[in-house]
Each structure stands twice: as C-alpha cells, then as structure tokens.
Design a protein around this nucleic acid. Structure first.
Lengths: 251, 251
DNA sequence: GCATCCGGTTGATCCACATCAAAGCGAACA
DNA sequence: TGTTCGCTTTGATGTGGATCAACCGGATGC
C-alpha cells in the first residue's frame, strides 16, 4: 500500500488499473471509501481520431483523464493561427476543478478513451480527500515545468532544434511506455501529422517537413515511410535539440 | 473568516498581511496552529535589483513568496540564448515542494523582499494541512494557464502583437494592484528593461525598441521618458495584441 | 482501373525579425 | 563641466522561416 504522503512517494500508484483515474493516479488507495463515491459518477467516453472532445468556451462539467490514445490542447486566434499548448497522453488529467468553462480546444489526435467524472462530486471529494489535491498538485507542477520547457523552445530555438526536441521527447516518452531504456537505437512512430507538429512547434508544416528531411539527410534520424523513426544515436539527437538539461519533459 | 473550501472561495485571504505567505495566500487562517509551526522556520531575505536569487541547478532548501518587488524566472541555453519563463510579482510563490534543486535562474528585477520557509518543515506541514496543498494547486493552475497563454504568444504572435500583449498585461496587473478599474486611460511604469522584455517575448531588444516606437507613433500608447506609459484606449491596445480572450493572465 | 483525397515533399520567392553598427541621452560621479 | 556608463534608439543589411505553388504517393471509393 503506497504511503499517503506525496512528498516522499512521488511515483505512487502510477499504473493502477482499477483506479478511476488511472496510471499516474490521483488516488493512492483505489479501494478507499472516498473512491466509492466517485465510482458512481464515473463514466467512460470514446472519441475517434480527429474528433473534438470540447471547444474552448464550452461549458464543461466533467474532469477526467486519458486512458488510451493521444489528444491535444490547442488555442486559436480569430484569424485562425493555432498553437498547441499541450499534448495529453494516457494518464494525463483534463479539466480544472472549480472551473466550469473549457479554456482550450481539446481534440483527439488518435482514437481516445477517456475516463470522466462529473465535476461537482469530484470537487467535493477533493475537499474531503486531501491526497487527491496533493496528487493533482504534483501533476500540475509537472505540467508547468513542461510548459516552461516549451516556452524556451518556442521563444528561442531554431526550426531544426525544435524538430529534434520534439522527436527526442516523443522517443523518450515512447521508451518509457514500453519500459525500455531510453538509451541508443530507439525506434518508434510519430503519432502526429506534420501539421500537428507545426502547431505544437510554432512553425508551418512545410518547415516541419523540410527539417525532418534535413535531419534524415544528415543521418540524425532514419525514416521508414513517413511516420516510423529510428534514432541511431540519441545523444546526437539531443545535441541537435540544443538540450543541455537532457530532461525534456512533456505534458 | 474565509471558508476552508478552495472551490467556492477562490479569492480567500488575498491580502493577508499577517500571513507568512502573503496576499493570494496559501493559508486561509493565519492564526491556525499549523501556521505557528511555520513561523519558526520563516525568514525574510532581500535582494537588490539585478541580484540573482538562485541559479538553476543549485540546491534549494527553501520555498517562499515575493513580498515586494519583481523577479524573473529564466532559462538559458549553453550558447547564451535566454528565455524568461515567468515573472514573479508580489504574492507569487517560488520553489516546489518535493524538489531540492532549482529548475530556473531566479533574478531580482527590482529590489525584492522575499518571505521564505525551510523546505522540509513546509512540506511536512503541507501534508498535515490540506488547505495549503489546495491553495497551492489553485495558484499552480493559474500559472499553468498563464504559461499556456504565453505559449500562444511565443509561437504565433507577431512582434507588434507581443509588445502590445505585454503592455496590456503589465497595465492590467498594475491596475489590479492599485485597485483601479482596468478600463480606459491607464497610466503606469514598465518595470522591465527593453532587454528583459525581449527575453520574455522571445525577441531581440532592438525589435522591442522599434515596436514600442511604432506603437507610440501610431498613438496606441503614449510615452513619457522611456518607462512611463499611458494607454489612451485599452480596447485598442487589446486589438493590437490580437487578444480575443481579453483574459490575459500573468504568472 | 481510374478518380479523388489526404498527408507529405520540394522548389521559388518574400518578408519579418535578427544582426551588426553607430549614435543619443539621462544619471552618476569626478 | 565634462566623462563615463547603462539603457535606448535608429539605420543598414542579412537570413531563417513563411508563403505560394506544384507535385507525389498511398489509401479509399466507385
């Protein structure tokens, strides 16, 4: 049984299949009485690739988390300029306690299964079960770090560095999921279209395409088809990404 | 006495002068027994403008909040490229429970007074006093929203829009502090040098200077000296910022 | 088997912002 | 009163990535 303190137990219950909020789970004890309350208001929703989960500004009376698939958080200006501000991977939380209006467009990139709770009961439980707020705080702090990492990328990196960073992050994340070492000779699929990458990186899709071709030409990555990437030398990729930290985070 | 629930009482104790963590305070009841514990490990530190509070990577065994003055959170690449990822204004929290290493450079922009706590006792108290985690969660979620707003700016806005956005945000924030309406005919000082603005906006200082001159030439803002700004028509400024939301947030 | 569509690539050209360079200006100080 | 220094402005030029446009190739449908 995991300790209740979030402080000394950062990784508690990261893959709890029974827990309504799975994986990097909000609750540390799935069988707690408090959770039973949530069970009543829990429900699953599925979305097909491309489908919109919710539009910015819409009333939102649920919170939830991604169970399988990938979704994106994007902001759009009136003239159509778009910026992805977050990528939601399995276990990532969506929605904000206390807020009844969506702040971003949420779109399914691949087919997505989400686990949702009605917001009010969730909020009530959050007040009664401190561990949830603590866990949510941790997750939010991680997201904030990732967002700040991304600000450096958006503000100061070149197109080539941006692409290398994104590939490195996706590769590392993929390795984590498969529980393989993030060492050398990594191979995986890019889950995003060139356009989605462009939206994430603050570029145009043409530039994304060109830079991927350039990285391929220079032997930094190998491509099979348009999506399948092999990284022969991960450190080389990190160099290209301009990453000193080597800590690349992802929302 | 404010209600303990953060959910229905978002603005509790926002200006609590007695509270160790002031203003948008972490604690809802300053006189609580738990807070007495913190008093013992509380201390104040002052920094002069330009001084570094802590370097990224340094050991950090305190958390705290800004009492007066302005500080910045910046990230730097090995070759010197810099990106400001947050602006710390009075009441903003600094540090992260559970992390003993600073993730960013923190620099005093103006003279700064900070209220600090040793990290360990703070963390212990956080576990015992749920309200603190709840309050911290709220603050962190606000910061995350601000960071995401900033990602749109960094990724997709033009230099002119970036400058207009920054001026609007500083103006609004200044109005809030003075408890004046953020309506029309706002007048205030820019607390940042051109270089700091550039670091925040992902531009060069020359571009910042040129765009400020352009906004002045076009009558969007009036300038007295180099720092004092008057905004004759705030809505006009928001238009220039490309801001539909009109919700501009700031870390 | 052909048309269509979608995602992707590649080329030509343009422009917003970076870069390099010089000079202005107010504050502090001798 | 002049000198220096930090911050700012302005000008000239260069360039990375945007924009506009054409084409490719595989999947889907008729």
């Amino acid at each position: 049984m995991p300790k209740p303190s979030i402080i000394e137990d950062n990784l508690s219950s990261q893959d709890c299949a029974d827990c309504p909020i799975r994986h990097r789970a909000v609750c540390a004890r799935c069988e707690s009485e408090e959770m039973a309350l949530l069970e009543e208001v829990k429900y699953y929703r599925t979305f097909q690739a491309g489908q919109t989960v919710i539009w910015s500004g819409d009333r939102m009376d649920f919170v939830g988390s991604v169970v399988t698939g990938i979704a994106s958080l994007t902001q759009t200006m009136e003239d159509g300029r778009r910026q992805m501000v977050g990528l939601l991977l399995p276990s990532d939380f969506i929605g904000r306690p206390g807020r009844q209006t969506a702040a971003y467009d949420v779109t399914a990139i691949s087919d997505v299964v989400m686990c949702c709770f009605r917001r009010k009961p969730f909020e009530e439980m959050m007040v009664r079960t401190p561990r949830i707020a603590q866990r949510l705080l941790e997750m939010t702090l991680d997201e904030l770090d990732a967002a700040r990492e991304w600000m450096l990328l958006l503000g100061r990196k070149t197109a080539r560095e941006k692409i290398a960073s994104l590939i490195a992050i996706i590769g590392r994340r993929d390795a984590e999921l498969k529980l393989r070492s993030a060492g050398n000779d990594l191979t995986f699929d890019l889950p995003l279209t060139r356009e989605a990458m462009a939206d994430y990186l603050g570029l145009t899709l043409e530039t994304v395409s060109r830079q991927i071709s350039a990285l391929k030409r220079d032997g930094v990555i190998l491509l099979e088809g348009k999506r399948h990437v092999t990284v022969p030398d991960f450190d080389r990729l990190l160099e290209e990404a301009g990453d000193d930290t080597d800590g690349g985070l992802l929302v």
